[in-house]
Design a protein around this nucleic acid. Sequence first.
DNA 1: TTTAAAGTCTACTAAAACAGTATACAAACA
DNA 2: TGTTTGTATACTGTTTTAGTAGACTTTAAA
Lengths: 134, 134
Amino acid sequence: MKLSQATDYAFRAILYLARQGVGEKVDAQTISEAEVIPKRFLLKIFRKLVQAGVVESYRGKYGGYALAVDPAKITLKDIVEIVEGKITVNRCLIDPDECNKRATNRCKIHNALAEIQQEVNQKLAEYNFAQFLD
Amino acid sequence: MKLSQATDYAFRAILYLARQGVGEKVDAQTISEAEVIPKRFLLKIFRKLVQAGVVESYRGKYGGYALAVDPAKITLKDIVEIVEGKITVNRCLIDPDECNKRATNRCKIHNALAEIQQEVNQKLAEYNFAQFLD
DNA sequence: TTTAAAGTCTACTAAAACAGTATACAAACA
DNA sequence: TGTTTGTATACTGTTTTAGTAGACTTTAAA
């Protein structure tokens, strides 16, 4: 029941770019040093963020990354889902075949977990990166 | 960001015992079959529940397990914590040394995650096993 | 008082996930 | 045209998860 290290790194990388402003390019090396994130690992995380359209990348000399979206429009939930996929508190909640009792909808515990999962998603969606800028 | 299979099994085992009533003994084999849980694995989970005092065990022939506590007093949070320990949404929230920026208390993101963590704990604590008895 | 059926304790193992690295490649600017 | 940047793919070591195994202990009934 925890977020991965990669997600935590992504939070910090996005916040770093948000502080520079939308469209302001910074190279991975600089962010890696400032935020104490292994560079190759950070590059890997950035590829997901680029693919998702949250960040844009610039290749070649003087390349780097810049925020593509207003920080106020980027939530913690967005980043979590980009990096590690949708949150699933219990495996039964994704795929009924994962419930070895095949009782997903009849099981009150699973209904409770579904509610908790929704609550977590909602909470994560309440925080956007504009709020984290000092 | 999900609960382990062991926790899910524990939920179902506790619910099974709750349906029998406090003090009503059932052997692991029966529960294993009814809830489709590997028996040896279930035995291992039960040891934690026994140690925590939620369940009492009876050894020897005609032994088994029985709920030791009123189901209304057992919450989802209790079981999660017994089986997999306290929930920590982000590793920084347990140990500041885990934050490679050493910024746990100054970091607004981590403060947000701390709030979400508390929310999850509170939600889990709102559900008790009496509520799940039809 | 023996024996069979229960749980206990410790250790082991296979598979998946996590965290990070490496190597080769492509683009861009100077 | 060469150096600096990101891209793509694949590899690797460690930890966690999920489950299994074997030897042992307890208990009740025959």
